[in-house]
Every structure is written in structure tokens, then in C-alpha cells.
Amino acid sequence: MQEQAVTQTTRPRALALSEEEHQRLQRRYQRRRSLTAYLFLLPGAIFFFAFLVIPILLLFFYTFNNGGIISEREWVGLANWRNVLRDDLVITAIKNTVVYCLMAIPAVFVISMVLALVLQQAARGGSAFRSLLYIPTLAPYVVAALLWQFVVHRDFGILNMILVEFGQEPRNWLGSPDLALRSITMLEVWRGVGFWTLLFLAGLIGLPKELYQAAAIDGANAWQRFRYLTIPLMRPTFFFAVVMATIWNLQLFDSVSILTNGGPQNSTVTVVWYIQQTTFAYTDKVGFGAALSFMLLLLILFLALIEIRLLRKR
């Protein structure tokens, strides 16, 4: 019996390099690999720093100054912050923006989810419907706003034509303080439905089919399958959608700027609109705009983080 039953623990040769030498070489080997990774990140990092990190820092700096775009910049300390917190129009802007979000996001999500479910069921022509539904999203706001004027125009808008047809009084959709923000919301919902439908549909298509077959065999009806399978399984998609929708919708500007320019009677003033006005329109209140911008930044971060917390937990 020449072979040994037990493993050879003897080394075939002595270690050639010392522990320290190995550590040095290993560090060098890993460093070279890390360096490659950093090189892959570098181009993105440059843009990220130049147009995201530095602007945030600069913005913070400008909240303590005034001027800087047309007039000379001057240090004013906390004056801008005081003004922002005292400004009535800031309160109005925040209120309008939040009210808008509370109207637009649930509406667009419910409509989009229904359409996504319906699209998933459509055996024929699904892709054609999908594309057609997406077309409003492709419209730039200037175009969307123009289109929407045809809908809400007091004299020849489609909505009023329908109202008149049913014997109702025509309304001044964009001209009355009660209706203007709702008209803006309608436009945003109309334009957003295509995008969110596509997103939800993609989520639905990605769900595991076996689970649905199993549930059907177990006797779950369509509603039960929706309630106990689709809703929980779509959570990651909803999670992403809610957070992103909040971030985007709190930046409402384009349609307001084009359709109502904040009016009538400040009923459609939004935060971003106010920032743009104070900074780039007739006034040169850069510092005030900066402080307001920073508040928007904090507001969005705050709301997004709250949503992430709430949605993660359940």
C-alpha cells in the first residue's frame, strides 16, 4: 500500500514570497483593477460633478447673496431666507404645487393602471393601441399646451362644445381661478397617461406567469388574482413610479408657463414657475430664487424619503 489514505498536507514547495511581498503585490493587482473601474466612472463623474454637485453647492452659496445674473453679486446673509419664509406667494406656490400633485398623480396612476391591465388582456392590436396611447407623451409642452387650448378654449374648445351640447353653461377653463389649476392637471394627466401605462404594462408583463396559472387552478377569480397577486407583485414598479412621479410633478413648470403664466390671480403659480420668474423674468431677485430653489430641493428630498420609508416598510 504505497498510497496514503489521508491527504498530503505537505506543500509541494515552499512559498516563494513573503507575507509582506504578497500583500504588496495583491494591493497592486487590486488597485489596477479598481483603477479600471474608476476610469469607467470618470466621464459620468465629470458631468455629475460639474452639473449636479457643484450647482448644488453654488446654489447654497447663492442663497446668501443677491444679484449675480444681471447686477453684481452681493452678500446679504440670511435676508433671502427670511424673505422666502415671509413671502405669501411662496406659500401659494407650494400649496398649488402640492394640490396639483395630489390631483394629478392618483388620477394618472389609476387611469394608467386600468389601461395597462386592459392592454395586457387585448389579444390583438395591443402594440398599435400602445403606440397610439403614447403619442401625447411625445408632444413637447409647447405643442401640448397648444393642443390643450383647443380643448379648453372658452370660445371654440371641445370641452365647452360638449357642455353646450348638454345644455350647460360654457366655462372659462383657463380664465377662472377655480378652474385653471384643474385644467392644467387635466393636461398633465392627458400627457402622462401614455408613459405610465407603458411603465405599468412592462411591469405586468414581467410578472411570473406560473403564479397566475397556479392561482387560477386554485380557483382564484380575476379580482382575487388582481388583489392578491398583481398588486403585491407590482410593488417594486409602484414604488419606483410613486417616487419618480413625486419628484417630476413637484417641478411643474412648462404647461403653467405656457398656458396661464401663473394666473389668473396667482391660482396656478407653482414653485418652479416662481423661481423662473424671480430670477429670469423682469426681476433680478437671484438670491430669493436660489433660496426658493433650495427649499424645493429640500421639499422633494423630504417627500421622496418619506415615501421611500413608507413604501419600504410594508
Partner: peptide, 8 residues
């Protein structure tokens, strides 16, 4: 939000 970084 990009809109908040408009000024800087």
C-alpha cells in the same frame, strides 16, 4: 430636481 439647479 433639475429645475432647482436652474440658477447655478
Amino acid at each position: 430636481p433639475f429645475a432647482a439647479l436652474l440658477i447655478p
